[in-house]
Amino acid sequence: MARYGMALDYKNCINCKACEVACKEENGVELGAEKHRIWVGGNDPKGEWPLLDIASAAFLPSQCQQCEDAPCQEVCPTHATYYDENHVVRVDSEKCILCSYCMNACPYDARYVDDRTMTVDKCTFCSDTRLARGETTTACQNTCPTKVRTFGDLDDPNSEISELLRTREHFSLKAHLGTNPKLFYLT
């Protein structure tokens, strides 16, 4: 039993795609831009050449925010979306009827349709692959060249992520919606 979360030192993100490839290979995610479980949003520096404001460019790794109060779980008519024992928002492909309510409800655009399993799928923190084997890292966290991601148990006061959240300022995406994400962006 754990309450898994992830802290992202997003200013170190260089948008190299290592996490995206690792995720696809680990979780057997289909190819194609619409099938990403994780992605990096960003914007170019503002200004005109040669006066560019490099500080205005930023890259933000994004994925399912693993909300404590997930709108996708709330709207699911078949209870396909559920919380597992580690508080990870999961999808039961047996129950999913592709109604796409969850896709519309998710404020983070985190869901996509997996054409193979006919499921509206999303990031699972590698729960049915790595974590199921007893490993303690997600594929994206493990491979990140610049060590942006810290994954761990929020309920364990001694975990690295708990320590980080105690000592570093951080924010959540669209916090005003009250979804209480378990992804934290370190400032």
């Binding site: 948008n15 979780n27 289909e30 194609g32 990096v40």
Partner: peptide, 21 residues
């Protein structure tokens, strides 16, 4: 610049396999 384009994902063979438990 970030160049993610929806490619012809439709008829593609399986390029990725989920790791087992």
């Amino acid at each position: 610049s970030l160049c993610v384009y929806a490619s012809s994902a439709m008829a593609m063979p399986l390029a990725t396999t989920k790791t087992s438990k």
